[in-house]
């Protein structure tokens, strides 16, 4: 069903200003199903800011982000249905176990519970599913965030530094998920890591979107 969904993400003249400082401007790109994009640039260049705006958890100063599924334009308030997002700025609930976290999230999304077990098994946390998140290691938390981002099988998968804190096996896991999503919908990774960048076919370097005329 997912493979024949037409997804289109269109970004036009996007600009973000923090405290009168231009983080980036004139960002334009269009991605369609099966596209994958790496957002690169030096530390502080705005990679995380851009990907948060794409995930609609943050607002741009000017410009547009529009999403359409099978030619139908999606309202901003419903972007969440189609987007999966892993970010260092995202935390799940410490006072609940891994399983409970996913159950709560499935509940809010209105999904049945039967996807939780396969997802937890896939990300390698099934054995530790009943431990509270506050005793999870940072790598385990990162894995659970990945589970959170794919439990609803999104049309656009957004990764901000997905392999941070992960062991070799975790990196492989990210690779396999990235591979799956770029062969099915849209994948975007914000990263400085050579390996993470190599997972994507296209690249946008935010160092080039700072001042007038440099674009």
């Amino acid at each position: 069903m997912l493979s024949n969904t037409e997804v289109k993400l269109e970004v036009t003249s996007l600009k973000k200003i923090f405290d009168r400082k231009i983080i980036f401007k004139d960002v334009d790109f269009t991605l369609n199903t099966l596209d994958s994009l790496a957002i690169t640039g030096k530390n502080g260049s705005g990679k995380s800011t851009l990907i948060k705006i794409l995930a609609n958890v943050f607002t741009q100063t000017t410009g547009q982000v529009s999403l359409s599924i099978n030619g139908k334009k999606i309202e901003k308030q419903y972007f969440y249905k189609y987007i999966g997002f892993v970010s260092p700025y995202l935390n799940l609930y410490d006072e609940f176990s891994g399983y409970e976290n996913l159950k709560i999230i499935a509940g809010i999304r209105g999904l049945p519970d039967n996807n939780i077990e396969p997802v937890l098994k896939r990300i390698g946390l099934w054995e530790r599913r009943n431990d509270m998140l506050k005793i999870y290691s940072s790598g385990m938390k990162q894995r659970l965030k990945i589970a959170f981002s794919i439990i609803h099988e999104p049309q656009i998968l957004l990764f901000d530094e997905p392999t941070s804190n992960l062991d070799a096996e975790g990196v492989q896991l990210v690779d396999s998920i990235a591979e799956e999503y770029k062969n099915r919908c849209i994948l975007i990774i914000a990263t400085n890591d050579e390996h993470e960048r190599s997972l994507c076919a296209k690249e946008i370097n935010l160092n080039n979107y700072k001042k007038d005329g440099t674009k």
């Binding site: 995930a55 609609n56 958890v57 308030q77 419903y78 969440y80 987007i83 999966g84 997002f85 970010s87 700025y89 995202l90 935390n91 799940l92 609930y93 410490d94 999230i105 809010i108 999304r109 959170f148």
Partner: peptide
């Protein structure tokens, strides 16, 4: 404070 507001932003509409 706990950085969990993204969870809500990514799973539900603002009105909900």
């Amino acid at each position: 404070d706990r950085g969990t507001s993204f969870v809500l932003k990514l799973t539900a509409s603002p009105k909900s």
